[in-house]
Simulated assay, not measured.
Amino acid sequence: MAPCKYRGAINIGFQPSITIGVLFANGLNYIFSKFIKGGWGWRFNLSCAMFSALVVTIGSIFLS
């Protein structure tokens, strides 16, 4: 869907996006595991993943 002259730049930007996403997810996992006691950390971590998946799903609906 990208124009020809921007396709390479968008493709190259994919790897840093994935890397930043993994770093952000690990940071949230660390924060939730250290500061939320009583076994609730994984629930908050899973809800953050669900929220980001919902954003991607809604965004993909508007792409087509």
Rank of each mutant, 00 (worst) to 15 (best):
K37R: 13
A53E: 08
K34M: 10
F24A: 15
I18E: 03
F32Y: 15
F51S: 12
M50N: 04
A2F: 11
F32C: 06
N11K: 13
F44C: 10
L28W: 03
F62E: 02
R43I: 15
I10W: 09
T57N: 07
F35Y: 15
N29C: 02
A9G: 15
S60K: 10
I31W: 13
S64F: 15
A25F: 06
S17V: 05
M1A: 09
G21S: 05
I58H: 04
L28Y: 04
I18V: 15
S17W: 01
I36E: 01
I12M: 07
Y6K: 08
Y30P: 00
S47I: 10
G59R: 05
T19Y: 07
V22Y: 12
K34T: 14
L28K: 01
S60T: 08
V55P: 00
F24H: 13
L54C: 09
G39W: 09
L63P: 00
G8V: 09
C48L: 09
P16C: 05
V55H: 02
I36V: 15
G38M: 07
I20Q: 04
I36S: 04
L28C: 06
F14D: 14
I10Q: 07
S47K: 09
P16S: 03
I31D: 03
K34G: 01
G27M: 09
K34N: 15
R7Y: 11
Y6D: 10
I61W: 14
F51R: 03
N26C: 12
I31G: 02
W42K: 08
A2Y: 11
I36K: 00
A9L: 13
V56Q: 08
S64Q: 12
Y30H: 06
G21T: 04
T57G: 08
F35L: 10
R7S: 13
R7Q: 13
G59I: 01
L46V: 10
N29Y: 03
N29W: 01
L28M: 13
F35I: 02
L28S: 02
L63T: 06
L46D: 11
Y30R: 04
I12W: 09
S64G: 12
L28H: 01
L23Q: 05
W42T: 11
G27W: 08
V22Q: 08
I58A: 11
W40Q: 03
R43E: 08
Q15M: 14
